[in-house]
Design a protein around this nucleic acid. Structure first.
Lengths: 130, 130
DNA sequence: TAACAAAGTGTTATAATATAACATTTATTA
DNA sequence: TAATAAATGTTATATTATAACACTTTGTTA
């Protein structure tokens, strides 16, 4: 049984904002949103983001330098992430597909590398934007 | 038959450096390397990088904000990229695996998104670093 | 081939993203 | 409760990327 993680004050504030957001949030946009709560410096945001990522509570969308809440496997360390990204409306969805995940997790590069983790980003147009 | 692309002066300079490099290069490291050739501003680098990416000559490693030459399908627009990244020595290899590529290219998100492009980054330890 | 359009260049300035370093406080655990 | 680990607050700065504008080169077509 996995112990529910206790978050520090700043971590909780940052996570709340990311969870409430409809799409990926950028670090500085989070910062501007929490200045009323007494968080004033980028460091404070980035530190919280780092921890939340470590805990698997959020993910970074690398192609956008932005952060989304994990909707899939709460409280798991995320070593297998996949996202669909709409190039028009910027909507991002986390993809939870057991087959895909299994396929990629067991994929081994011929050149002898054993993988610990992967991140996959699909780009296209979402249903709405099509 | 695909017409061999003619590169502009700056594009060629930037591509040469990336092709000669053993690993991924960052934009500003490219800049410092070409100042002797009269390129002085980030813009000039980023413009060349953008075009080279469009042409499929290079790829961006999103998790590293760095650029590598395409060793796989020269002169093709790259809508299906996969890389293995060593977390210890930072070595990056482009993965060319027909099965993997086919599998991912035909993957469709249940929620109705049709993908145009994907980028996959695997992380682990390379043979040497293991 | 002149004239127009498209692509590329050079430059200055600045925006956006991220980390270093250090002093202090809070929480945990031995 | 002392020692240690984790988190915080703060200032400064490094790194990555784009905006805007004037100019030049290249390619196209009338």
């Amino acid at each position: 049984m996995t112990q529910a993680q206790i978050l520090s004050r700043n971590q909780q504030i940052v996570l709340d904002i990311i969870e409430k957001a409809k799409g990926p949030l950028k670090a500085y946009s989070i910062l501007f949103n929490v200045q009323k709560k007494g968080i004033n410096a980028p460091q404070q945001i980035y530190r919280a983001l780092d921890k939340l990522i470590e805990m698997g509570k959020i993910h970074k969308i690398e192609s956008k330098n932005a952060f989304v809440a994990c909707r899939i496997s709460d409280c798991e360390i995320s070593n297998a992430t996949a996202f669909s990204i709409c190039e028009s409306c910027e909507k991002v969805d986390e993809i939870s597909d057991a087959k895909l995940s299994k396929y990629l997790s067991s994929f081994n590069h011929k050149k002898g590398m054993k993988f610990k983790r992967f991140n996959l980003e699909f780009f296209g147009l979402c249903k709405k934007c099509k």
